[in-house]
Amino acid sequence: MGQLFALIMLWGIHYSITKYQFLSIPSSLITNELFKELTGMAVLADTKGNIIKANRQICTFLNYDEDKIVGVNITDIIDHEGIGMTVKNCEHLNNPVRFSDVTVSFKSGQAIPFKITVIPLHPISNITTGLLVIGENKMIEEILKQKNESISELNKELMAVNEILKNKSIRDGLTNFYNHQYINELLEIKLAEAAETKENLCVLMMDIDNFKRVNDRFGHLTGDRVIIEVANLIRQNIRSSDYAGRYGGEEFIAVLPYTSLEYASQIAERIRSSIQNYDFGIKGLRVTISIGAAQFDDRLPDSLVNMADMLLYQAKYNGRNRVENILAETRV
């Protein structure tokens, strides 16, 4: 990014020279500080290719003192036929010339590929009075590309980890259903949508019957297995557009958007029937569930859940292993 900024500044210098029609290349404009900050190659030369100013990094690479490089011909640094011809014919040069693969040999013996751009400076009309030679170290560019790719991969990994952490924070560890807090937050959102669109929304509150007896008779490991299997059966009987949560212990909730009470009751009955008929593979273990189904009609989230909860306990009172439903009345 720094190199790009510097290049933009150099182009600005070229524009300034052209715009204001200076009679010669103003060395005060091309400041020492600017050149010191540039990476790669930045060289200001006259029309014969003799260097007027060079950045610190290229001086270091070439093993020149900053003042000793002045007067050295650019073609002595860059042995490239195309660049030599460009310098030779620079008086007729109107536009920048780019060379994508130029080898620059340093005094250390190291040869490094550069991208070179030769920019003609035109302070008076179309007459070239100087050259700006900018070079990008392709090795550094490749290293930066690899680092950027590594950073990109790291970002993807971090996003994946964040997604995992997010899921852990909103999911129940045993059933992978949404947890109590998140399903309530989700319900609030869906209630707001239903209130705005005037679409139906139903909630099912479900509770495994006599679950304490399961734990007492068969142990807590079997109890956990029952909760997992019941959650799976609930999942199989709701739609992909519905949302299921573990409300606590052996109690579950399902949020059914765009669903009438009649159809919600059919879904609830499928859930109840599938659990009643499910074989857990344990002799003497029979599991049933009671369900309360309520439909939203311009109510607050806790009111709808409370109504479904009341219907659930009505199902318990009426003998368990059943579905109870009623349309929640509009609050006046």
Rank of each mutant, 00 (worst) to 15 (best):
Q3H: 14
H14C: 02
T18D: 03
E33I: 05
L34N: 01
F35R: 03
G40K: 04
M41F: 03
V43W: 11
A45F: 10
D46S: 13
T47N: 13
T47F: 02
G49K: 08
N50V: 05
I52C: 08
K53I: 05
K53Y: 08
C59I: 04
T60R: 11
L62G: 14
L62R: 15
N63D: 07
D65S: 13
D67C: 03
G71Y: 02
V72I: 13
N73Q: 07
I74A: 06
T75F: 08
I77P: 06
I78K: 08
E81H: 08
I83D: 04
I83S: 06
I83Q: 04
T86N: 00
H92S: 12
N94L: 09
N94A: 09
N95A: 02
P96G: 07
F106T: 12
F114S: 10
T117L: 00
V118K: 01
P120H: 12
P123T: 01
S125E: 08
T129R: 09
I134T: 00
I134N: 01
K138T: 12
M139Y: 05
K147L: 01
N155H: 14
N155F: 10
E157S: 01
E157L: 01
L158Y: 10
L158F: 03
A160M: 13
V161E: 13
E163P: 03
E163A: 14
I164G: 01
L165C: 04
K166N: 00
N167R: 15
K168D: 09
T175H: 06
H180Q: 08
I183H: 07
L186Q: 08
I189L: 04
A192W: 06
A192N: 09
T197C: 04
K198G: 05
N200M: 02
M205W: 12
M205D: 00
M206T: 09
I208S: 15
I208H: 15
F211C: 01
R213F: 12
V214G: 07
N215H: 13
G219I: 13
L221S: 13
G223T: 08
D224S: 11
V226R: 12
I228N: 12
E229V: 07
A231K: 10
L233M: 14
L233G: 06
L233A: 05
R235E: 15
N237S: 03
I238D: 03
I238W: 12
I238H: 14
S241G: 10
S241W: 09
Y243V: 06
Y243L: 11
A254M: 15
A254V: 15
L261G: 05
E262R: 00
A268N: 00
I275S: 09
D279W: 07
F280V: 06
G284R: 03
R286K: 14
T288K: 02
T288S: 15
A293I: 06
D298E: 15
L300D: 10
P301E: 04
N306C: 12
A308M: 14
D309P: 10
Y313A: 14
Y313C: 13
Y313T: 06
Q314E: 15
N321A: 11
R322T: 11
N325K: 07
L327H: 01
A328H: 12
E329W: 02
E329T: 00
V332P: 12
